[in-house]
Design a protein around this nucleic acid. Structure first.
Lengths: 109, 109
DNA sequence: CCTATTAATCGTAATATTGCAATATACAAA
DNA sequence: TTTGTATATTGCAATATTACGATTAATAGG
C-alpha cells in the first residue's frame, strides 16, 4: 500500500504526523537550520549550502512551504525564503504538547 | 532513488530526521499517545485500540523499539510495552533544541 | 504431548519518497 | 529583443513505506 489510513486517526494525530514527516528528512532539517542561522531571508544560496541539486532543493522547499513553515517572496530573478514565524510558533505548540507529555512515575518494565 | 543522502548532513541533522520520521505516521503517534495515557505498561491491546491489523501494529512497534523510544518486555504469551523514559527525555532534548531556535526579530519578508 | 493464545516474521501489492536531468518559466540587463 | 540568471516543473528510475494475509515462534494450560 504505502498509504497511511489517516481516516482512522484523530485530526491532531494526523497533524502531528504531517509536521513530523516534513522534519523526517535531513535536507529539510538542514534548510531550516540554515534559515534560522542566517536569521533573515535567504536568496537561493541554499543549493550551494546544502549538497543537493537545484531541483531537489526546490522540491524540499516546496514541501516546507506547503505546510506553511517557510515563506518565499520573489525578489527579481531570485526568491527569498524565511521561516514563517507565526506558523512555526503554532507548529511548535502542537509538537511540544506531544513530546512533553508526562512520563509515568512508576517503573513498569 | 528514494534514498536520502545522509552522508552529506551532520550527525545531528540525521538524528533529528530519524526521530521525526518515526513520528511521521499517525499510527505511531497514536501508539505513543496511548502509552502515555495509560501511564503504565500495555499488554497487546494496541491492536484493538488502533484500527490496524496485528502485523501492521507489530511493525510500527518495532520501529519505535528500534529507535529506543519504547520498551517491550515479554510477559507470558503477551508482550508489555511502555515508553522508554530515559531515551524519550534524551530525544525530547534534541527535538526541543531544533524546534525552539530563536526566531528572527526583523520582519524580512 | 496437544491446543489455544499472542506476537513476530515473511511475502507481496499498492503507493510514496528521493534525487536528478531535462526543460520550462520568469525576470533583469544589455 | 536577446541573453543570462535563478527558480520551478516534469518525467523517470531507484528505493522506501504501508498494510495485511499467511505463516511461524513462543508460551500457558490442559
Amino acid at each position: 500500500m504505502g498509504l497511511a489510513k489517516t481516516e482512522i486517526f484523530t485530526d491532531l494525530q494526523n497533524e502531528i504526523a504531517l509536521y513530523a514527516k516534513v522534519f523526517g528528512h535531513p535536507a529539510r532539517v538542514a534548510i531550516l537550520e540554515h534559515l534560522f542561522k542566517i536569521n533573515a531571508c535567504v536568496c537561493g544560496d541554499l543549493v550551494n549550502e546544502i549538497g543537493l541539486a537545484q531541483p531537489t532543493i526546490s522540491q524540499h522547499l516546496k514541501e516546507l512551504k506547503n505546510l506553511g513553515l517557510i515563506k518565499g517572496t520573489v525578489e527579481g530573478t531570485s526568491v527569498c525564503y524565511c521561516i514563517h514565524k507565526e506558523n512555526w510558533t503554532q507548529m511548535k505548540e502542537v509538537m511540544f504538547k506531544f513530546l512533553d507529555q508526562d512520563l509515568p512515575k512508576s517503573n513498569c518494565c
